[in-house]
Design a protein around this nucleic acid. Structure first.
Length: 489
RNA sequence: GGCCCCGUCGUCUAGCGGCCUAGGACUCUGGCUUCUCAAGCCAGCUACGAGGGUUCGAAUCCCUUCGGGGCUACCA
């Protein structure tokens, strides 16, 4: 995507936080961010909170937190400021009011006194008649008398933009040249009856005032673009200074509907709690609607920024696939350095009360992490996997108890207990050597049989990290005590 | 209903007229390895929605059709 005017690239991510940021929002944010980084431009973050009934301070704070967590740092916006602030639309009300007054004075916009009941009735009529829906223009040319009448009836007007006859043509970088006939773009409301601005006004005014050069946003806003352009015209912005538009395809849920809070786990906060890595989420999301062009699938944030171009963005929607996200998350976990892995694992262990977080515990966790690193898909699996190392009153899980109750299992445990008691060098290699010599070679047992019994006796479960490493981490005393505790006679 | 967008394996995608008897990844199935579970390795299944054109030649261009989605708010 070139930049025909000389202005420096500025891309904005402008969510309306009516809930936790979800997968679709973040995919848009990621592409915005990647485009800015790729071009060396500015990444602007703006909060569209003109609907204060639905946007709360908590959601705004959560959105800021989520973006930070993902590493999608912005150059202009909340907290960091910038030359074109404020970046919360609720703090720019006077600006919108000024432009609204100007549009009214220019006759680009007009007061509309229609009640919602009247508009509703009109829409129904249009629908049943099969004609183009939209405002019928009833208040376009009100006489002074009519206005006086409405006012005396106590009606408060909205400010409505006048759409002239004709059409709007613009180029969408992803979809090509698009033309919308104004006959299907009805006059739209800019300012509510209570004087508060609408998205239709604020988005256009802000993009112009904040010198935004590229608008990459969801496909759902595609048909609102002619309205946005109409506002540019009323503002007197020359066409050469309109931003480039690129409407990103949807990210859809499993049921093929647009991803929303109603279907599936969409909130990024949930993925965070589940132990997905931010870089895995970004990597996966980058592959939804975009690809590096070669067969590469594992890409770092740095690579995403280097390789991202809007030209490579698909025009068709993508389905969100949890399985693939999990696969990528597992890959990313395996790539973690031990210290990094430790820092990310600790909060999960503490939250699940497996450890309190003291130095001694952390030391054990650090020693144990390497043997589970390739065994987990999400960080939230760690507590269950390492719990056996920290439990004070050890118990074998109920379903495994019968498996060590029979005579052959009991003799294995007895034999192992004797072998291990005499073992001085308590290392996983030493443990393995002595047990193999005794159980496998001397007694001729199948490894699977012998070690399963010991696994149950020492970890409490048939599934565990590698046995000898687990024993080493557990320590000689605890291992002997646990095996002894499993002896029945 | 009207307007608009979209259509390659189950899913994400590569492909931008000949390199395609369509490649990769995830999933799934089978196998190898193996102290469990994983990881790893190998193999296999499965796709150009349909119908017309254009062309020597089409997944790639055009049309129609069907299907999916979005918008149609004093939401964004």
């Amino acid at each position: 995507m070139s930049n025909s005017n000389d202005r420096p690239v500025k891309v904005r991510f402008a969510p309306s936080p009516t809930g936790d940021l979800h997968v679709g929002n973040i995919r848009t944010a990621l592409f915005d961010w990647a485009f800015a980084r790729h071009t060396g431009g500015v990444f602007l973050f703006r909060i569209e909170d003109t609907d204060r009934l639905r946007v709360t301070d908590e959601y705004i704070a959560a959105a800021i937190d989520t973006l930070k967590w993902l590493g999608l740092n912005w150059d202009e916006g909340p907290e960091v400021g910038g030359p074109n602030g404020p970046y919360l639309q609720s703090q720019r009300l006077d600006i919108y009011a000024e432009w609204a007054a100007k549009f009214l004075a220019q006759d680009d916009a007009y007061h509309c006194y229609c009640s919602s009941e009247e508009l509703e009735a009109s829409r129904e009529a249009q629908k049943s008649a099969g004609t183009a829906p939209g405002y019928d223009g009833k208040c376009r040319d009100l006489t002074a008398d009519q206005v006086a009448q409405f006012k005396s009836a106590g009606r408060e007007p909205v400010l409505r933009m006048r759409m002239p006859d004709g059409s709007t043509t613009f180029t969408d970088v992803i979809r090509g040249e698009l033309t919308f006939e104004h006959e299907f773009v009805p006059d739209f409301v800019l300012v509510r009856a209570d004087g508060s601005p609408l998205y239709t006004l604020a988005v256009a005014v802000d993009d112009v005032l904040m010198k935004v050069t590229h608008v990459l946003r969801g496909e759902d806003l595609l048909s609102s673009t002619p309205r946005q352009i109409r506002v540019y015209q009323a503002m007197g912005v020359p066409e050469s200074e309109y931003p480039y538009f690129a409407h990103l395809p949807f990210v859809m849920g499993q049921d093929n509907a647009k991803l929303s809070k109603r279907n599936g786990e969409t909130s990024i906060a949930w993925y965070r709690e589940m132990g997905f890595l931010p870089e895995a989420i970004c990597n996966y999301l980058a592959l939804l609607g975009w690809s590096p062009g070669d067969d590469r699938e594992n890409v770092s944030m740095k690579e995403i920024a280097e390789l991202f171009t809007v030209e490579r963005v698909n025009s068709s929607p993508a389905r969100f696939d949890m399985k693939k996200l999990e696969a990528i998350n597992g890959d990313k976990i395996r790539e973690l350095t031990l210290d990094d892995f430790l820092n990310r694992a600790l909060p999960f262990l503490i939250k699940d009360q497996v450890i309190k977080g003291d130095a001694k515990e952390i030391e054990i966790v650090k020693a144990a992490l390497p043997i589970i690193q390739e065994r987990i898909v999400t960080l939230s699996e760690i507590p269950a996997m390492l719990k056996f190392l920290f439990v004070t009153n050890f118990e074998v899980e109920a379903e495994s108890l019968p498996k060590i109750a029979d005579e052959s299992a009991q003799s294995i445990l007895k034999r192992a207990l004797a072998d291990l008691s005499n073992l001085n060098e308590w290392s996983h290699a030493g443990i393995e050597a002595v047990l193999r010599a005794s159980l496998i070679e001397e007694l001729g047992l199948k490894p699977r049989i012998a070690f399963t019994a010991l696994r149950i006796a020492t970890t409490g479960s048939t599934i565990s990290p590698p046995l000898f490493e687990s024993m080493e981490l557990l320590g000689k005393d605890a291992v002997l005590a646990r095996i002894h505790g499993c002896l029945l006679g």
